[in-house]
Each structure stands twice: as C-alpha cells, then as structure tokens.
Design a binder for these strands. Structure first.
Lengths: 249, 249
DNA sequence: GTAATAGTGTCTATTAGACATTATCTT
DNA sequence: AAGATAATGTCTAATAGACACTATTAC
C-alpha cells in the first residue's frame, strides 16, 4: 500500500488523494505465549507509514479473496505470523473511531490467541518487518506503540486474566507434556500472583476427571518428588469451572 | 443509498457499479425490552433492497461526521430508534463475511441494549420503515429476517441469558419503581424458567446492601401481602454476584 | 377466618482456601 | 538423613437451593 515516502506528511497526502468515503477495517491478533516464565505478546516493528518504526500488533486488512468469514481471516493471519494452523483464539472486542489511524475513520476487531512457545516459527514477513516476542510487563517501556494497540493489548490481557479465574485456558500455553505445577505456574505468570498449591490441585483434578488432562504415564525429573506428566486434550470450548478463583487483591 | 428499484437484481447491478474495493461496515443494536411479560426485540421492516420487506435489526452505517468513536455511533442509533439518550448497552460480537450481504464482503458489530419499555417512543424513521417490538419466541415465525440478523439476535440472547445468571442486568428493564417479585419475573421471562423465590431474595438483598436497590418507602398494592417498592440506582458497570445461579436444565 | 404473597430462618450440599500430614524422589 | 516437592485429607467460611415458618394485606 505505502512504500517509499520520506515523511509521514508526504505519505498521508498521497493516501488522502486515494481515500474512498469508507471505513478502514482491520483485524489485530494479540498472540500470547509463555516464554522464560513470562507472558509475552507477538509484535512487529513497522517499516512503513503510518507509525513507521513503532511496534504494532501483527494485524492488517482482510484479504477478501482469501477469506469467506472473519474467522477465516484470523486463522490466515495466525498462520502467516506463527506458522500455526491450529491455535486457541477468541474475539475480544471491536474498537475504532476517527482518531485511531491518521488515515481516517478506522475500525479494528481484536482477537487474542494462545500459542505454545516452542511451536512458533517466527519469520520476517513480506515487508521484512522485525517480528519479536515482547514481555507484557515491558510494553510500557517500548519507545513507541502504533495506533491504539496498547489499549487493545490491555483489553486482551484483562479478558485473559479474568477468564482464567474460571477456565482452563492456560493449558493451551503448555508444552506437549507438563506437570500440574507447570500449569499452575502459567496461571501465576498470567495473574502475577501466587496460587495456593493444594487449592490448584483440586481444580486440576476436575480437568483430569473430565479427561481434559490425560496422564501420560511419564514422570518429570525435576527437583523434589517426581510429578506425573499430563497431556492436554482440549475440547472445542474451554472448560469452565463452577466457581471462580477468588480475586486475592 | 438505494431508492426505487423494481427488483433486487436491478438494485444490485446499480450497486456493484459503485462498489469500491472495501468492506461494508455496519452497527446492529439488538434492543431488548420486557413488554407484557415477554422479552421483545426492536425490529424494522425494510423498505429498500436488499432484503426488501424483511424484518431487520435497526442498524446501519456509521455517520463518520457525527461520531468520533464506535460507541458514539451506537448511542446515536439508540437515540434515533428509541428516543433514549441513556440506556445500558454492551458489545456482543463482530461478525461478517462474504455471504452476509448480497452487496459484498460485509462486517457488523452487534450490541445489545436493555431499555425500559414505557420510556421508548417508537417513530417511523426517515425512510418510513415500520418499527415494532417482536417477541423473541415469535422470531422463528416471522416470514423473513434480513441478513444474518437471526444469528445476531441469538448471539445477543445467549449472552444476555448467560450474563444474568451472575449479574443484575435485568434491573435495567424495570419500571422506575418495582418490587423484588417484578425483578425476579424479569429474570424468569428472560431465562424462561422458574426461580425459587427465597433464593432470589437473597440475591436481591446483596443489591440492597450495595445500595443498588433503594427502598422508596412506597408499597405495592397488588394481591397478597404488600411488597416494598425499590428504585434501581445503577453503577457504571453491572453488579457481578460472586456465584452464578445454577443452570437448572 | 381464608387466600395470597412478603419476608425470614434453618438445613444441606458444594467448593474455595488454609493448613497439616504423608509419600516419593535426589543428594 | 536432609531437602524438596507431590499427593491427600481435614477444617472453616461462603453461598445456592430447598423448604418451613411467620407476617401482612384484601376479601
């Protein structure tokens, strides 16, 4: 769309000349993973205007020829950015307005996705933008974040934090086999609080009873008493516990 | 946009000639009220193509000059259709695709709103479309519903039904003053199940303790022992109970 | 009084959270 | 044996649901 402008003003002038009287629509996935015991988000460094050189979500326009529905378009974006063709994702919200994009009235639909870190293959995209995992706690110190993407990430994070108090969503972030302790640590990393081990085990037992966590027969070889290794067998929708974890704030 | 075409084919031919390579975006509010002990949705009968003469949600395009954000645009639509400038509303989802609208790739963001029946003043709009409350249980028997609006209504209804099991949302549907019994009946109408009276009173007491239901000092004059009349003083977000009501299905 | 509904209290089941105890591994 | 963590059990508090009982009105 935009290629070699020297300044943003120059770019916008050329863009306005082309502008139809319509709303610009995009999809922005907030792709979460757990890497090195921290919750991280996939971001790209923009190589073109607007917000050249700022960090942004790896979103963009819908290719109408390639997708029949919005969900198709989201799957395509996830595949393009992570190489994954199956990942948990859900719609968070749609936001927009006159001020979101200097090109004019724009709307974006935000999805969050949960991916297993070691399954992701990052590749620079067609425009050779830098793609990198950013720890959520470091987002404030990023020099510049494009559009309203900070707001969109925060909305996704809030949804995720709230939803894991009554669902098994973090299991989607686990390696192929993992211990209950590792799963608990995923909850702790996302919520940034400690969770009582014994209380958590009761929750995990519900998942085992439901067949969502399957004992592999293998045993972890970490420090202390060895723990059973489980595999996650997700259903089409996340498991919902009957009660929320108490918000210990 | 479209005015006097004899057939849909003729209309579409004229429309395609105008089409930019963009996505058509609209907002569709699902406005719920309780009227005559039934949950009803505000619908309009379309006077123009596409889906001429079918019932549709009272949505449409965003007027970019009038609104700075999507929420502004929703407020404007609610005002235009109901005369209300303050109503509870929340975003449900954004849906769309190639097949939703015969004019081409389209996206809509769905909001549900809860309004007090006696406050609404229905007026035929600029294009003199018929505007009417439709009971949700009668939607299946409506001869024709435009676009994917049946799906959008069902999504809103599902959200509403789920959310009232742990929030005070139905209080937004009540008359100015009402009894606990009336509030309970609103829940029953929406969920289409009976709710144990005494269990419900405990929930209501939480709302009274929080100051969300205020005793007016007045007394209802219905049959049986007179009941206290309350007023709803909503906060900016709905009250969330610590536990859901059990799904008694 | 009877009918009808409001309002309150009692009992049980579920579950989270806190915490103690026992079990199983490595060094 | 010491250290570490897993796995299990016990106790308490909160709350929903079921249901009994009392209170207040109209007739």
């Amino acid at each position: 769309m935009s290629e070699h402008y020297k300044t943003e003003a120059e770019f916008l002038k050329a863009f306005q000349a082309n502008t139809h009287d319509t709303i610009l629509y995009s999809i922005d996935p907030v792709i979460f993973t757990i890497k090195e015991q921290s919750l991280q988000v996939l971001m790209v460094k923009r190589k073109s205007y607007p917000f050249k050189d700022a960090w942004a979500l790896p979103g963009g326009r819908i290719d109408k020829g390639e997708s029949k529905t919005i969900e198709d378009a989201v799957r395509l974006k996830l595949l393009a950015k992570t190489g994954l063709d199956h990942a948990y994702f859900e719609q968070v919200m749609t936001d927009g307005g006159k001020e979101m994009d200097p090109r004019g009235w724009s709307i974006t639909t935000v999805y969050f996705a949960l991916v297993r870190y070691e399954d992701v293959v990052l590749e620079e995209n067609q425009t050779r933008e830098l793609v990198a995992w950013q720890p959520v706690e470091a987002l404030n110190s990023l020099s510049s974040i494009a559009f309203w993407h900070h707001k969109l990430i925060n909305a996704s994070l809030e949804r995720l934090r709230n939803k894991i108090t009554y669902t098994d969503l973090p299991a989607n972030l686990m390696p192929k086999v993992f211990t209950i302790r590792q799963l608990r640590m995923a909850y702790e990393v996302i919520l940034d609080t400690e969770i009582t081990r014994q209380a958590f085990v009761k929750r995990a037992n519900h998942l085992i009873d439901k067949g969502l966590l399957v004992d592999t027969g293998e045993i972890s070889d970490e420090v202390g008493r060895p723990a059973k290794l489980y595999e996650y067998v997700p259903e089409s929708t996340p498991h919902v516990f009957s009660h929320s974890m108490n918000k210990t704030k």
